[in-house]
Design a protein around this nucleic acid. Sequence first.
DNA 1: TACTTTATCTTGACACCGTCAACATAGCCT
DNA 2: AGGCTATGTTGACGGTGTCAAGATAAAGTA
Lengths: 231, 231
Amino acid sequence: MSAVNVTDTREAVVTSATDTAVNTISNAVSNPAQSYHHGDLRTALLNAAAKRLSEHGVDSLSLRKLAEDAGVSRTAPYHHFKDKSALLSAIAAKGFSDWHSTAKRIFEQEEKTPSARFREFVCEYVGYAAANPEMYELMFGRTLWQNNAATSDLKDVAFPCFQFQVTMTKFWQNKGLLPDNQDALRLAQVTWGTLHGIARLLIDGIYADSSHIQEMCDCAADLFMQASNKA
Amino acid sequence: MSAVNVTDTREAVVTSATDTAVNTISNAVSNPAQSYHHGDLRTALLNAAAKRLSEHGVDSLSLRKLAEDAGVSRTAPYHHFKDKSALLSAIAAKGFSDWHSTAKRIFEQEEKTPSARFREFVCEYVGYAAANPEMYELMFGRTLWQNNAATSDLKDVAFPCFQFQVTMTKFWQNKGLLPDNQDALRLAQVTWGTLHGIARLLIDGIYADSSHIQEMCDCAADLFMQASNKA
DNA sequence: TACTTTATCTTGACACCGTCAACATAGCCT
DNA sequence: AGGCTATGTTGACGGTGTCAAGATAAAGTA
Protein backbone atom coordinates (compact mmCIF):
# COMPACT_ATOMS: atom_id res chain seq x y z
CA MET A 1 0.00 0.00 0.00
CA SER A 2 2.84 2.35 -0.46
CA ALA A 3 4.37 3.81 -3.59
CA VAL A 4 1.86 2.53 -6.08
CA ASN A 5 -1.02 3.71 -4.04
CA VAL A 6 0.44 7.13 -3.65
CA THR A 7 1.08 7.53 -7.34
CA ASP A 8 -2.39 6.44 -8.32
CA THR A 9 -3.95 8.76 -5.86
CA ARG A 10 -1.88 11.65 -7.01
CA GLU A 11 -2.98 11.28 -10.59
CA ALA A 12 -6.56 10.96 -9.54
CA VAL A 13 -6.39 14.03 -7.40
CA VAL A 14 -4.55 16.15 -9.89
CA THR A 15 -6.96 15.46 -12.70
CA SER A 16 -10.00 15.86 -10.59
CA ALA A 17 -9.78 18.88 -8.51
CA THR A 18 -8.31 21.50 -6.36
CA ASP A 19 -4.68 21.95 -5.78
CA THR A 20 -4.88 22.93 -2.20
CA ALA A 21 -3.50 19.50 -1.72
CA VAL A 22 -0.89 20.01 -4.37
CA ASN A 23 0.67 23.11 -2.95
CA THR A 24 0.83 21.88 0.60
CA ILE A 25 3.29 19.54 -0.84
CA SER A 26 6.41 21.38 -1.30
CA ASN A 27 7.12 17.96 -0.18
CA ALA A 28 10.17 15.99 0.59
CA VAL A 29 12.73 16.03 -2.07
CA SER A 30 11.72 13.32 -4.44
CA ASN A 31 8.08 13.58 -5.27
CA PRO A 32 6.85 17.06 -6.04
CA ALA A 33 3.18 16.11 -5.95
CA GLN A 34 1.56 14.05 -3.24
CA SER A 35 -1.77 13.02 -1.93
CA TYR A 36 -3.34 14.00 1.33
CA HIS A 37 -2.15 10.75 2.82
CA HIS A 38 1.52 10.13 2.77
CA GLY A 39 1.46 6.42 2.19
CA ASP A 40 4.17 5.27 4.54
CA LEU A 41 4.80 8.11 6.90
CA ARG A 42 5.98 5.90 9.70
CA THR A 43 9.01 4.57 7.90
CA ALA A 44 9.60 7.92 6.25
CA LEU A 45 9.85 9.43 9.71
CA LEU A 46 12.14 6.70 10.93
CA ASN A 47 14.41 7.14 7.94
CA ALA A 48 14.52 10.89 8.35
CA ALA A 49 15.18 10.42 12.03
CA ALA A 50 18.02 7.97 11.48
CA LYS A 51 19.58 10.39 9.03
CA ARG A 52 19.23 13.41 11.30
CA LEU A 53 20.40 11.36 14.26
CA SER A 54 23.69 10.38 12.68
CA GLU A 55 24.28 13.77 11.11
CA HIS A 56 23.20 16.21 13.76
CA GLY A 57 22.83 14.25 16.96
CA VAL A 58 19.95 13.28 19.14
CA ASP A 59 19.75 16.64 20.86
CA SER A 60 18.78 18.51 17.72
CA LEU A 61 16.26 15.92 16.68
CA SER A 62 12.78 17.42 16.77
CA LEU A 63 9.49 15.95 15.69
CA ARG A 64 8.70 19.13 13.81
CA LYS A 65 11.81 18.90 11.67
CA LEU A 66 11.15 15.25 10.97
CA ALA A 67 7.63 16.12 9.90
CA GLU A 68 9.03 18.73 7.58
CA ASP A 69 11.54 16.27 6.18
CA ALA A 70 8.66 13.96 5.38
CA GLY A 71 6.68 16.79 3.86
CA VAL A 72 3.92 16.60 6.38
CA SER A 73 2.41 18.83 9.02
CA ARG A 74 3.89 19.09 12.48
CA THR A 75 1.41 16.94 14.31
CA ALA A 76 1.13 14.18 11.75
CA PRO A 77 3.79 12.07 13.49
CA TYR A 78 1.48 11.70 16.47
CA HIS A 79 -0.68 9.34 14.46
CA HIS A 80 2.25 6.93 14.27
CA PHE A 81 4.08 7.50 17.54
CA LYS A 82 2.57 8.21 20.91
CA ASP A 83 5.17 10.85 21.61
CA LYS A 84 8.77 11.71 20.93
CA SER A 85 10.04 8.96 23.20
CA ALA A 86 8.13 6.37 21.22
CA LEU A 87 9.80 7.48 18.02
CA LEU A 88 13.22 7.48 19.63
CA SER A 89 12.48 4.06 21.07
CA ALA A 90 11.72 2.72 17.62
CA ILE A 91 15.04 3.98 16.32
CA ALA A 92 16.93 2.57 19.27
CA ALA A 93 15.19 -0.75 18.77
CA LYS A 94 16.64 -0.95 15.29
CA GLY A 95 20.05 -0.20 16.73
CA PHE A 96 19.76 -2.97 19.30
CA SER A 97 18.62 -5.43 16.70
CA ASP A 98 21.61 -4.58 14.50
CA TRP A 99 24.10 -4.67 17.33
CA HIS A 100 22.75 -7.92 18.69
CA SER A 101 23.35 -9.61 15.33
CA THR A 102 26.83 -8.20 15.14
CA ALA A 103 27.64 -9.40 18.63
CA LYS A 104 26.32 -12.86 17.89
CA ARG A 105 28.27 -13.03 14.65
CA ILE A 106 31.50 -12.21 16.43
CA PHE A 107 30.77 -14.54 19.30
CA GLU A 108 29.94 -17.50 17.10
CA GLN A 109 33.03 -17.52 14.89
CA GLU A 110 33.90 -21.13 15.57
CA GLU A 111 37.04 -20.97 13.48
CA LYS A 112 38.67 -18.46 15.80
CA THR A 113 39.95 -19.07 19.29
CA PRO A 114 37.78 -17.85 22.17
CA SER A 115 40.58 -15.50 23.10
CA ALA A 116 40.62 -13.94 19.63
CA ARG A 117 36.86 -13.61 19.67
CA PHE A 118 36.95 -11.99 23.08
CA ARG A 119 39.46 -9.44 21.95
CA GLU A 120 37.54 -8.81 18.77
CA PHE A 121 34.34 -8.30 20.71
CA VAL A 122 35.96 -5.70 22.92
CA CYS A 123 37.24 -3.78 19.92
CA GLU A 124 34.02 -4.07 18.00
CA TYR A 125 31.99 -2.86 20.94
CA VAL A 126 33.97 0.30 21.40
CA GLY A 127 34.31 0.62 17.65
CA TYR A 128 30.55 0.50 17.18
CA ALA A 129 30.10 3.27 19.71
CA ALA A 130 32.81 5.37 18.13
CA ALA A 131 31.39 4.85 14.65
CA ASN A 132 27.79 5.54 15.66
CA PRO A 133 28.07 7.83 18.64
CA GLU A 134 24.57 9.27 18.46
CA MET A 135 22.95 5.90 18.01
CA TYR A 136 24.97 4.56 20.92
CA GLU A 137 23.90 7.50 23.04
CA LEU A 138 20.29 6.79 22.18
CA MET A 139 20.58 3.07 22.87
CA PHE A 140 22.51 3.26 26.13
CA GLY A 141 21.91 6.82 27.27
CA ARG A 142 19.63 8.27 29.88
CA THR A 143 17.21 9.78 27.36
CA LEU A 144 15.15 6.63 27.06
CA TRP A 145 16.01 4.64 30.16
CA GLN A 146 15.93 7.22 32.88
CA ASN A 147 12.20 7.82 33.28
CA ASN A 148 10.82 4.65 31.82
CA ALA A 149 10.53 6.48 28.53
CA ALA A 150 11.51 3.29 26.75
CA THR A 151 8.67 1.57 24.95
CA SER A 152 7.93 -2.03 25.86
CA ASP A 153 8.80 -2.82 22.26
CA LEU A 154 12.23 -1.40 22.87
CA LYS A 155 12.66 -3.34 26.06
CA ASP A 156 11.77 -6.53 24.23
CA VAL A 157 14.73 -6.01 21.93
CA ALA A 158 17.13 -4.46 24.40
CA PHE A 159 16.87 -6.84 27.32
CA PRO A 160 17.95 -9.93 25.36
CA CYS A 161 20.83 -7.83 24.12
CA PHE A 162 21.83 -7.01 27.68
CA GLN A 163 21.35 -10.62 28.64
CA PHE A 164 23.64 -11.76 25.87
CA GLN A 165 26.47 -10.01 27.67
CA VAL A 166 25.97 -12.40 30.58
CA THR A 167 25.79 -15.41 28.30
CA MET A 168 29.08 -14.49 26.71
CA THR A 169 30.66 -13.83 30.07
CA LYS A 170 29.78 -17.31 31.28
CA PHE A 171 31.27 -18.79 28.14
CA TRP A 172 34.49 -16.88 28.57
CA GLN A 173 34.68 -17.93 32.19
CA ASN A 174 34.33 -21.56 31.13
CA LYS A 175 37.07 -21.11 28.57
CA GLY A 176 39.37 -19.68 31.24
CA LEU A 177 39.52 -16.22 29.69
CA LEU A 178 37.79 -14.55 32.60
CA PRO A 179 38.24 -15.35 36.28
CA ASP A 180 36.12 -18.24 37.45
CA ASN A 181 36.00 -17.10 41.06
CA GLN A 182 33.53 -14.31 40.38
CA ASP A 183 29.79 -14.40 40.06
CA ALA A 184 28.95 -14.37 36.35
CA LEU A 185 26.39 -11.60 36.67
CA ARG A 186 28.70 -9.29 38.59
CA LEU A 187 31.52 -10.03 36.22
CA ALA A 188 29.32 -9.31 33.23
CA GLN A 189 28.30 -6.03 34.79
CA VAL A 190 31.92 -5.07 35.35
CA THR A 191 33.16 -6.07 31.90
CA TRP A 192 30.23 -4.41 30.20
CA GLY A 193 30.77 -1.44 32.45
CA THR A 194 34.33 -1.17 31.27
CA LEU A 195 33.39 -1.20 27.62
CA HIS A 196 30.52 1.15 28.21
CA GLY A 197 32.66 3.52 30.20
CA ILE A 198 35.40 3.69 27.61
CA ALA A 199 32.83 4.17 24.89
CA ARG A 200 31.10 6.96 26.75
CA LEU A 201 34.26 8.81 27.69
CA LEU A 202 35.12 8.72 24.01
CA ILE A 203 31.84 9.75 22.48
CA ASP A 204 30.95 12.30 25.12
CA GLY A 205 34.05 14.29 24.32
CA ILE A 206 35.94 13.69 27.55
CA TYR A 207 38.76 11.83 25.89
CA ALA A 208 39.57 14.64 23.51
CA ASP A 209 42.06 12.44 21.74
CA SER A 210 40.32 9.47 20.17
CA SER A 211 43.34 8.25 18.26
CA HIS A 212 44.28 5.47 20.64
CA ILE A 213 41.10 3.46 20.74
CA GLN A 214 42.86 0.31 19.67
CA GLU A 215 45.42 0.54 22.45
CA MET A 216 42.76 1.15 25.05
CA CYS A 217 40.77 -1.85 23.90
CA ASP A 218 43.86 -4.05 23.92
CA CYS A 219 44.71 -2.83 27.38
CA ALA A 220 41.24 -3.65 28.64
CA ALA A 221 41.26 -7.09 27.05
CA ASP A 222 44.72 -7.80 28.43
CA LEU A 223 43.65 -6.76 31.87
CA PHE A 224 40.68 -9.07 32.01
CA MET A 225 42.53 -12.04 30.62
CA GLN A 226 45.45 -11.47 32.94
CA ALA A 227 43.07 -11.58 35.85
CA SER A 228 41.91 -15.03 34.88
CA ASN A 229 45.39 -16.48 35.09
CA LYS A 230 45.45 -15.96 38.81
CA ALA A 231 42.07 -17.39 39.54
CA MET B 1 3.65 45.55 38.53
CA SER B 2 7.33 45.50 39.06
CA ALA B 3 7.87 49.07 38.01
CA VAL B 4 5.64 50.32 40.79
CA ASN B 5 7.05 47.87 43.21
CA VAL B 6 10.57 48.90 42.39
CA THR B 7 9.84 52.55 42.86
CA ASP B 8 8.21 52.00 46.21
CA THR B 9 11.02 49.85 47.37
CA ARG B 10 13.58 52.33 46.29
CA GLU B 11 12.00 55.12 48.32
CA ALA B 12 11.72 52.92 51.37
CA VAL B 13 15.22 51.70 51.13
CA VAL B 14 16.90 54.89 50.12
CA THR B 15 16.03 56.51 53.42
CA SER B 16 18.26 54.10 55.23
CA ALA B 17 20.85 54.40 52.52
CA THR B 18 23.41 52.43 54.42
CA ASP B 19 22.64 48.81 53.84
CA THR B 20 22.64 47.66 50.30
CA ALA B 21 24.17 44.49 51.63
CA VAL B 22 21.50 43.83 54.20
CA ASN B 23 18.43 44.00 52.06
CA THR B 24 19.95 42.09 49.20
CA ILE B 25 20.97 39.19 51.33
CA SER B 26 17.69 37.54 52.12
CA ASN B 27 16.38 38.70 48.84
CA ALA B 28 15.23 35.59 47.06
CA VAL B 29 12.49 33.98 49.07
CA SER B 30 11.97 35.77 52.31
CA ASN B 31 11.93 39.46 51.55
CA PRO B 32 8.98 40.62 49.45
CA ALA B 33 10.46 44.07 49.13
CA GLN B 34 13.34 44.09 46.72
CA SER B 35 15.72 46.63 45.44
CA TYR B 36 16.32 47.01 41.76
CA HIS B 37 19.69 45.36 42.09
CA HIS B 38 19.79 41.96 43.63
CA GLY B 39 23.08 42.25 45.42
CA ASP B 40 24.52 38.84 44.85
CA LEU B 41 22.55 37.34 42.03
CA ARG B 42 25.39 35.19 40.81
CA THR B 43 25.62 33.06 43.91
CA ALA B 44 21.86 33.11 44.36
CA LEU B 45 21.56 31.60 40.89
CA LEU B 46 24.21 29.02 41.62
CA ASN B 47 22.51 28.02 44.85
CA ALA B 48 19.12 27.76 43.20
CA ALA B 49 20.70 25.78 40.39
CA ALA B 50 22.41 23.34 42.72
CA LYS B 51 19.13 22.79 44.51
CA ARG B 52 17.11 22.29 41.35
CA LEU B 53 19.85 20.10 39.91
CA SER B 54 19.82 17.64 42.76
CA GLU B 55 16.05 17.67 43.14
CA HIS B 56 14.77 17.69 39.60
CA GLY B 57 17.70 16.85 37.37
CA VAL B 58 19.72 18.72 34.83
CA ASP B 59 17.18 18.27 32.07
CA SER B 60 14.53 20.33 33.79
CA LEU B 61 16.92 23.06 34.77
CA SER B 62 16.03 26.25 32.96
CA LEU B 63 17.46 29.71 33.27
CA ARG B 64 13.98 31.14 33.50
CA LYS B 65 13.08 29.05 36.51
CA LEU B 66 16.33 29.92 38.20
CA ALA B 67 15.65 33.57 37.59
CA GLU B 68 12.24 33.14 39.15
CA ASP B 69 13.76 31.34 42.13
CA ALA B 70 16.04 34.31 42.64
CA GLY B 71 13.13 36.72 42.26
CA VAL B 72 14.53 38.34 39.19
CA SER B 73 13.52 38.76 35.57
CA ARG B 74 14.23 36.10 32.98
CA THR B 75 17.19 37.73 31.31
CA ALA B 76 18.93 38.95 34.42
CA PRO B 77 21.14 35.83 34.58
CA TYR B 78 22.79 36.85 31.34
CA HIS B 79 24.60 39.62 33.15
CA HIS B 80 26.41 37.00 35.20
CA PHE B 81 26.73 34.08 32.80
CA LYS B 82 27.37 34.24 29.10
CA ASP B 83 24.80 31.55 28.47
CA LYS B 84 23.29 28.46 30.00
CA SER B 85 26.45 26.44 29.45
CA ALA B 86 28.45 28.95 31.42
CA LEU B 87 26.14 28.58 34.39
CA LEU B 88 26.21 24.80 34.17
CA SER B 89 29.98 24.95 33.89
CA ALA B 90 30.17 26.92 37.10
CA ILE B 91 28.12 24.31 38.92
CA ALA B 92 30.17 21.47 37.51
CA ALA B 93 33.34 23.26 38.55
CA LYS B 94 32.17 23.18 42.14
CA GLY B 95 31.49 19.48 41.77
CA PHE B 96 34.97 18.80 40.45
CA SER B 97 36.54 20.80 43.19
CA ASP B 98 34.63 18.84 45.81
CA TRP B 99 35.31 15.47 44.25
CA HIS B 100 39.00 16.22 43.80
CA SER B 101 39.35 16.88 47.51
CA THR B 102 37.50 13.71 48.36
CA ALA B 103 39.67 11.68 46.02
CA LYS B 104 42.82 13.17 47.49
CA ARG B 105 41.63 12.53 51.01
CA ILE B 106 41.04 8.88 50.26
CA PHE B 107 44.27 8.50 48.37
CA GLU B 108 46.39 10.06 51.06
CA GLN B 109 45.27 7.99 54.04
CA GLU B 110 48.73 6.90 55.04
CA GLU B 111 47.49 4.74 57.87
CA LYS B 112 45.68 2.40 55.50
CA THR B 113 47.27 -0.07 53.12
CA PRO B 114 47.38 0.91 49.45
CA SER B 115 45.13 -2.02 48.72
CA ALA B 116 42.51 -0.80 51.18
CA ARG B 117 42.71 2.68 49.76
CA PHE B 118 42.34 1.39 46.24
CA ARG B 119 39.24 -0.54 47.16
CA GLU B 120 37.85 2.39 49.04
CA PHE B 121 38.45 4.67 46.09
CA VAL B 122 36.55 2.37 43.78
CA CYS B 123 33.59 2.26 46.12
CA GLU B 124 33.64 5.97 46.81
CA TYR B 125 33.78 6.80 43.14
CA VAL B 126 30.71 4.79 42.26
CA GLY B 127 29.11 5.84 45.52
CA TYR B 128 29.57 9.51 44.70
CA ALA B 129 27.91 9.02 41.35
CA ALA B 130 25.05 7.08 42.89
CA ALA B 131 24.55 9.67 45.61
CA ASN B 132 24.75 12.65 43.28
CA PRO B 133 23.56 11.33 39.95
CA GLU B 134 22.65 14.65 38.41
CA MET B 135 25.84 16.32 39.47
CA TYR B 136 27.78 13.38 38.10
CA GLU B 137 25.89 13.61 34.84
CA LEU B 138 26.74 17.28 34.62
CA MET B 139 30.42 16.75 35.45
CA PHE B 140 31.08 13.78 33.21
CA GLY B 141 28.22 13.92 30.71
CA ARG B 142 28.04 15.10 27.16
CA THR B 143 26.12 18.26 27.98
CA LEU B 144 29.22 20.28 28.68
CA TRP B 145 32.01 18.36 27.00
CA GLN B 146 30.51 17.45 23.69
CA ASN B 147 30.59 20.78 21.87
CA ASN B 148 33.24 22.59 23.80
CA ALA B 149 30.47 24.06 25.89
CA ALA B 150 32.71 23.78 28.91
CA THR B 151 34.10 27.07 30.13
CA SER B 152 37.86 27.42 30.37
CA ASP B 153 37.28 27.94 34.08
CA LEU B 154 35.70 24.51 34.22
CA LYS B 155 38.53 22.96 32.29
CA ASP B 156 41.01 24.43 34.71
CA VAL B 157 39.36 22.53 37.54
CA ALA B 158 38.42 19.40 35.66
CA PHE B 159 41.66 18.56 33.90
CA PRO B 160 43.74 18.26 37.07
CA CYS B 161 40.97 16.05 38.38
CA PHE B 162 41.27 13.81 35.32
CA GLN B 163 45.03 13.90 35.64
CA PHE B 164 44.85 12.76 39.23
CA GLN B 165 43.43 9.50 37.99
CA VAL B 166 46.69 8.89 36.15
CA THR B 167 48.77 9.86 39.15
CA MET B 168 46.93 7.38 41.32
CA THR B 169 47.24 4.69 38.69
CA LYS B 170 50.99 5.06 38.60
CA PHE B 171 51.12 4.81 42.37
CA TRP B 172 49.06 1.65 42.39
CA GLN B 173 51.23 0.18 39.69
CA ASN B 174 54.28 0.87 41.80
CA LYS B 175 52.65 -0.77 44.77
CA GLY B 176 51.91 -3.86 42.72
CA LEU B 177 48.15 -3.43 42.87
CA LEU B 178 47.80 -2.87 39.16
CA PRO B 179 49.73 -4.62 36.39
CA ASP B 180 53.10 -3.07 35.73
CA ASN B 181 53.27 -4.25 32.15
CA GLN B 182 50.76 -1.70 30.89
CA ASP B 183 51.23 1.90 29.94
CA ALA B 184 50.07 4.01 32.86
CA LEU B 185 47.94 6.29 30.72
CA ARG B 186 46.13 3.44 28.99
CA LEU B 187 45.64 1.68 32.27
CA ALA B 188 44.26 4.81 33.86
CA GLN B 189 41.86 5.20 30.99
CA VAL B 190 40.66 1.64 31.37
CA THR B 191 40.27 1.72 35.14
CA TRP B 192 38.56 5.07 35.04
CA GLY B 193 36.46 3.77 32.19
CA THR B 194 35.34 0.87 34.32
CA LEU B 195 34.27 3.07 37.19
CA HIS B 196 32.65 5.54 34.86
CA GLY B 197 30.81 2.82 32.99
CA ILE B 198 29.44 1.20 36.11
CA ALA B 199 28.43 4.59 37.43
CA ARG B 200 26.67 5.54 34.23
CA LEU B 201 24.85 2.27 33.81
CA LEU B 202 23.58 2.80 37.32
CA ILE B 203 22.54 6.41 37.17
CA ASP B 204 21.16 6.29 33.66
CA GLY B 205 18.64 3.67 34.67
CA ILE B 206 20.02 0.75 32.70
CA TYR B 207 20.80 -1.28 35.77
CA ALA B 208 17.27 -1.18 37.07
CA ASP B 209 18.41 -2.85 40.26
CA SER B 210 20.91 -0.70 42.11
CA SER B 211 20.98 -2.81 45.23
CA HIS B 212 24.27 -4.55 44.50
CA ILE B 213 26.59 -1.62 44.08
CA GLN B 214 28.94 -2.89 46.75
CA GLU B 215 29.32 -6.28 45.10
CA MET B 216 29.98 -4.73 41.73
CA CYS B 217 32.66 -2.48 43.14
CA ASP B 218 34.29 -5.36 44.95
CA CYS B 219 34.21 -7.42 41.80
CA ALA B 220 35.85 -4.62 39.82
CA ALA B 221 38.53 -4.09 42.45
CA ASP B 222 39.21 -7.82 42.67
CA LEU B 223 39.52 -8.05 38.94
CA PHE B 224 42.12 -5.34 38.66
CA MET B 225 44.17 -6.59 41.56
CA GLN B 226 44.03 -10.14 40.32
CA ALA B 227 45.43 -8.97 37.02
CA SER B 228 48.46 -7.54 38.73
CA ASN B 229 49.42 -10.87 40.24
CA LYS B 230 50.13 -12.26 36.83
CA ALA B 231 52.15 -9.35 35.55
C1' DT C 1 28.75 68.22 44.70
C1' DA C 2 27.44 67.25 39.87
C1' DC C 3 28.27 64.54 35.86
C1' DT C 4 29.47 60.46 33.53
C1' DT C 5 30.38 55.86 33.06
C1' DT C 6 29.50 51.14 34.05
C1' DA C 7 27.12 47.25 36.10
C1' DT C 8 22.91 45.43 36.69
C1' DC C 9 18.08 44.55 35.91
C1' DT C 10 13.81 45.30 33.04
C1' DT C 11 10.31 44.38 29.23
C1' DG C 12 9.56 42.95 24.51
C1' DA C 13 10.39 40.04 20.93
C1' DC C 14 11.83 35.95 18.16
C1' DA C 15 12.36 31.32 16.91
C1' DC C 16 12.18 27.17 18.40
C1' DC C 17 10.09 22.99 20.96
C1' DG C 18 6.37 19.01 22.43
C1' DT C 19 1.72 18.31 22.68
C1' DC C 20 -3.40 18.70 22.81
C1' DA C 21 -8.01 19.73 20.59
C1' DA C 22 -10.83 20.19 16.79
C1' DC C 23 -11.56 19.56 12.15
C1' DA C 24 -10.73 17.55 7.10
C1' DT C 25 -9.86 13.96 4.02
C1' DA C 26 -9.45 9.50 2.10
C1' DG C 27 -9.50 4.62 2.16
C1' DC C 28 -11.95 0.50 3.52
C1' DC C 29 -15.84 -2.38 4.83
C1' DT C 30 -20.57 -3.46 4.95
C1' DA D 1 -24.13 4.46 -0.82
C1' DG D 2 -23.01 5.24 3.76
C1' DG D 3 -20.36 5.07 7.75
C1' DC D 4 -16.10 3.84 10.38
C1' DT D 5 -11.41 4.47 11.00
C1' DA D 6 -6.86 5.79 9.79
C1' DT D 7 -4.44 9.56 8.66
C1' DG D 8 -3.74 14.08 7.66
C1' DT D 9 -4.60 19.40 8.78
C1' DT D 10 -4.54 24.13 11.40
C1' DG D 11 -4.75 26.53 15.77
C1' DA D 12 -3.39 27.08 20.27
C1' DC D 13 -0.87 26.67 24.81
C1' DG D 14 2.95 26.76 27.68
C1' DG D 15 7.67 26.05 27.73
C1' DT D 16 12.65 27.06 26.28
C1' DG D 17 17.29 30.04 25.22
C1' DT D 18 18.63 34.31 23.72
C1' DC D 19 19.00 39.02 21.66
C1' DA D 20 17.91 44.16 21.59
C1' DA D 21 16.76 48.28 23.74
C1' DG D 22 15.56 50.85 27.62
C1' DA D 23 15.57 51.74 33.00
C1' DT D 24 17.99 52.09 37.24
C1' DA D 25 21.51 52.26 40.62
C1' DA D 26 26.21 52.28 41.98
C1' DA D 27 30.78 53.82 41.34
C1' DG D 28 34.16 56.78 39.60
C1' DT D 29 35.66 61.47 38.29
C1' DA D 30 35.76 66.47 37.75
